[in-house]
Design a protein around this nucleic acid. Structure first.
Length: 350
DNA sequence: AATTCGGGGCA
DNA sequence: TGCCCAGAATT
């Protein structure tokens, strides 16, 4: 297949030097692939460096506390990746004596490892002929073959997986998989791909039909829902505060936050106090709204309109265990909370 | 088959 | 704003 050879040739001349390209150790490849799920290399790279520094082997990761893993993951998002990463490390260390499965089907059984990641590890580490299909691959194939089937449908996923499996270099699956993804990231980019110097333009359907900007086709997702968060930032006796661990379903599972009062709309001070009193009997000395304008934290499926209420008191709220304010940065928190802590200077307030 | 999970970067 | 990113798990 011409596209196969062209991609591999292009890759040999254009590939970036990345740390996980200097190893075939499944631990490092797995770690990099989990970090890079739905994450650009520029964003994930410092986290990869931090993880291999902190946890050089799968046993080190397995022996860590989940809290420490989440703390190191803080800011990267999709925190189920971190929880599954840790759970899988423990499984590999204790049940498999530190040895990763060496096949696509074996890897696929691991928590947090789906079709893409199993294919990536199997090909990169064990030369298994398993085609990766990530966002880059969808784009390159949709354009080159002029495919209009939406990529986020069952039919689309099957079609692109079959197509990638069809053109993969069975003699060199590792380089081919790297090549088609790197080509999508650097050459066949989402915006302003440089088609004028593209080695595939002679046979690219989208280039010939001038539909590059229309491909790949993707069904639109729903608009994010608005939520209204009121965080209770206690300052107890000028030295302690309250944080709580998020349990159950939903975002930020197992991360910490200030006690949260969610409302149906943005609250002024009167309305906030009313809501607060229905929630608990509270004695406080001073109440201050940190941000008069809602901080809007935008996630894929929800927009969080957020207020931070600073409550100075000498009474510990019921059913809460205070922590020292000086210890607050040791906990894993959502970036929304971290940004507040960084800007809000506790020391100047007490 | 749809929805839910984060956060950053870009036009 | 809306879309994208080396996707996976849950509903």
């Amino acid at each position: 297949m011409q596209i196969t050879k062209t991609l591999i040739s292009w890759y040999s001349n254009n590939k970036r030097q990345l740390p996980w390209r200097n190893t075939k150790d499944p631990y490092y490849i797995w770690l990099s692939e989990i970090i890079l799920q739905q994450t650009q290399i520029k964003q994930g790279l410092p986290y990869y460096e931090a993880f291999i520094e902190q946890y050089p082997t799968v046993f080190d990761l397995a022996n860590a506390d989940e809290e420490a893993v989440l703390k190191l993951w803080q800011g990267l998002g999709y925190y189920s990746r971190a929880r599954n990463l840790h759970a899988t490390a423990k499984y590999i260390a204790s049940e498999l004596h530190g040895v990763f499965p060496n096949s696509y089907s074996g890897l696929l059984k691991l928590k947090g490892v789906g079709d893409y990641t199993a294919s990536a590890i199997a090909s990169f580490c064990f030369n298994e002929v398993a085609a990766v299909v990530d966002g880059n691959v969808y784009r390159v194939l949709a354009r080159f073959y002029g495919i209009q089937t939406p990529i986020n449908t069952t039919d689309g996923k099957k079609m692109f997986k079959a197509l990638a499996s069809d053109i993969i270099d069975s003699k060199n699956p590792a380089d081919f998989n790297q090549a088609i993804m790197e080509f999508g990231a650097l050459q066949c980019k989402p915006n302003n791909p440089n088609c004028s110097v593209c080695p595939l333009k002679e046979n690219c359907v989208a280039f010939r039909e001038n539909t590059i900007s229309l491909l790949p086709v993707k069904l639109k997702n729903n608009k994010p829902k608005k939520k209204y968060f009121n965080f209770l930032v206690y300052i107890i006796n000028e030295q302690q505060t309250i944080i709580e661990k998020r349990h159950g379903k939903g975002i930020w599972q197992n991360l910490y936050q200030f006690p949260l009062l969610e409302s149906k709309h943005s609250l002024d001070e009167v309305a906030f106090l009313k809501e607060l009193q229905t929630r608990e009997e509270l004695v406080f000395d001073d109440l201050t709204l940190f941000n008069s304008v809602d901080i809007v934290h935008k996630l894929s499926h929800q927009h969080l309109y957020t207020k931070f209420w600073v409550i100075k008191t000498s009474v510990i709220p019921k059913n809460n265990k205070p922590i020292a304010i000086s210890e607050i940065e040791t906990f894993a928190v959502p970036i929304l909370i971290k940004n507040f802590i960084d800007v809000f200077n506790f020391q100047s307030e007490i």
